[in-house]
Amino acid sequence: MLILFFYLGDVKYSIKCEKVREVAPMVTLKDVPNTPEYFAGLFNYRGMIVPVIDLCQLIQGRPCKMRLSTRIILVDYKKDDNTPYVLGLMAERVTEAVRRPKDVFLSPGINMGEAPYLGGVVMEEKKMIQYIDLDLLPESFNFLPMLQNPSDNAQETY
């Protein structure tokens, strides 16, 4: 299984590559006012409007440094009604992808509460590297109507 490593500050994190569509270099983002700090902006990705989340801001509360190695990880998602959409995740030092067996993913068995997506760890050279669960990640963003449950929207119209 392919794992993508990246850093947020000095801390190394990982994600599974299964859903990663592309790792793109940093681009100019369109700012959207009145959104949470971790929402970096929108950009035109091959004709699609893709929202970009600043993982540094989300997890560590400070924006990503603008370096050449700061990249946008584009992840494929599906809404509940099966319409696909793409989400961009901005992180620092996205320079390494490695192949590892499935059993390196371990769950410490604790409930992360505020950040359910930060549950598991990857064992790499006997060190623990937290991994970000891409499935649980979008649940934390409630500011994007397109990511919300369609049933929520339906209730509003009633």
């Binding site: 100019t28 950009f43 370096r67 190695s69 030092r93």
Partner: peptide
């Protein structure tokens, strides 16, 4: 790769 991001690079990739 830990160099600052030039604006031209950003524009080009955009």
């Amino acid at each position: 790769l830990e160099r600052d991001l030039p604006q031209e690079y950003k524009d080009e990739w955009t």
